[in-house]
């Protein structure tokens, strides 16, 4: 069998409502929106999307939209040692970005500029990209970086 999906992802798709209770995250992401769940009782913003609040243990959660821009808190790059299915992606630049206007420091892959051209505090934008097997995931694009196709 030819493997088309990077194996650091689930071996089988788990993004649809038949498989997960947070399928809405992926539906929203396909539409270009970043979202997560928040506890209605204690207001805790939960990442990744949860189905129960780990603070109060209530199950009354609501979906909220998150900002799409953030500032890099830290970054690096995988120059050697990629997981299966990602070897051709090296170097894999990754970072933690503080979202602008939400108390969340999000981790993700960075595209649009190599690690040599990045700096702490730099602005990045969250964007969806297609994963084989009709999946979707998010990544950061360096603000002002050149547009690329979704295989970047």
């Amino acid at each position: 069998m030819k493997r088309t999906t990077p194996t650091a992802f689930d071996f089988f798709p788990q993004e649809e409502s038949q498989q997960t209770r947070v399928s809405r995250f992926f539906e929203e992401l396909r539409a270009g929106r970043l979202s997560t769940t928040r506890c209605r009782k204690d207001g805790a913003l939960l990442w990744p999307p949860r189905v129960a609040c780990p603070r109060c243990h209530g199950e009354d959660l609501e979906w909220v939209e998150l900002p799409l821009t953030g500032r890099l808190y830290a970054f690096s790059a995988v120059l050697v040692g990629a997981p299966l299915g990602m070897e051709q992606d090296l170097p894999i630049t990754v970072g933690l970005a503080d979202l602008e206007g939400a108390p969340l420091r999000l981790f993700g892959r960075i595209v649009g500029a190599g690690w040599e051209r990045l700096s702490v505090g730099q602005r990045v934008r969250v964007e969806p990209f297609a994963v084989p097997d009709e999946r979707v995931f998010y990544r950061f694009r360096v603000d002002g970086g050149l547009a690329e196709n979704s295989s970047a």
Partner: peptide, 17 residues
């Protein structure tokens, strides 16, 4: 793994940050 590992990250980039 589904949220952090899926970005292609392992230990070295984390400790690099």
């Amino acid at each position: 793994r589904p949220w952090d590992g899926a970005h292609g990250a392992t230990a070295p980039p984390f400790f690099a940050m």
